[in-house]
Amino acid sequence: MSGGYRSLFYGISLLPLLAGTAYALAYSLGLAGIGAPGFTAGYWALVLQSPETWSSLFLSLAVAFAAVLLAVPAALLPVLFYSELLENPVIRYLLFLPVSVPPLTAAFMGVEWLGTGGMAARFLPGAAGVGMPSLINHYWHTGIIISLTLMSIPFLIILFWQHSRAEKLSGLVELARSLGANRIQVLFCVAVPVLLNRALPQIGLMFVFLFGSYEVPLLLGMQSPRMISVLIAQKFRKFDLADIPHAYVLTVIYAFVVGIIAWLVSRTNRGAA
């Protein structure tokens, strides 16, 4: 009976994805779609030879990596050093509140604050006169990374806070102290590894989300290179029908990369997201 329920779950969760990806694959090989030319590897050859593909994939991975790398320590900080603040419901609410900021609004905040005449420039001493370099459409994609990092921090704070309670971190820290560990040892040999180890699957998932993020790079990114979701969406939206097969090739590549990351995440999984 359980097998039937499992099939139902796979049917709803996996089947649309597989069907969608199969259609994308068929389209990308010239086997489906309006005026399909019949089997051809031409679209794949073009897309795989295009520097745009590789720079987009690399950019997406790098941005996701940078945002996780910045957000993890920033979120660990309040949980490890100011846990007493998190016991206060008002402060906890203020720290958790930003999870209710939609990506679209976060992107809009980025536009308003990180541009040349933006709010950040007005608050930075001296920048008002000289003008702060715009972080929107920035070469290093700084605006995107800042926005995605800020979006990720509150989620990670909640995550680490929940794990620190579930793992009874304060007890483990006291135990380590009583065994003679100094502050640095307690931090890097106990607290940080305990939290990171437990949160690893969720951090992995966060990486996948950031890798495929759409609204923030759409508003804050450069014309080229573009993050993978934006690149695919723009290729689909172009009126030039010749771009559609390329969009489908990129979709298959994206699905493949996400599949690999999700598989890796599931291998590290010890709890639900």
Partner: peptide, 19 residues
């Protein structure tokens, strides 16, 4: 759970184009 994660983590906009 692995399958759930895969579907859950998929970029919504690309998911939509797939379907």
């Amino acid at each position: 759970q692995a399958v759930g994660y895969l579907a859950y983590a998929f970029s919504p906009v690309i998911y939509a184009y797939c379907l």
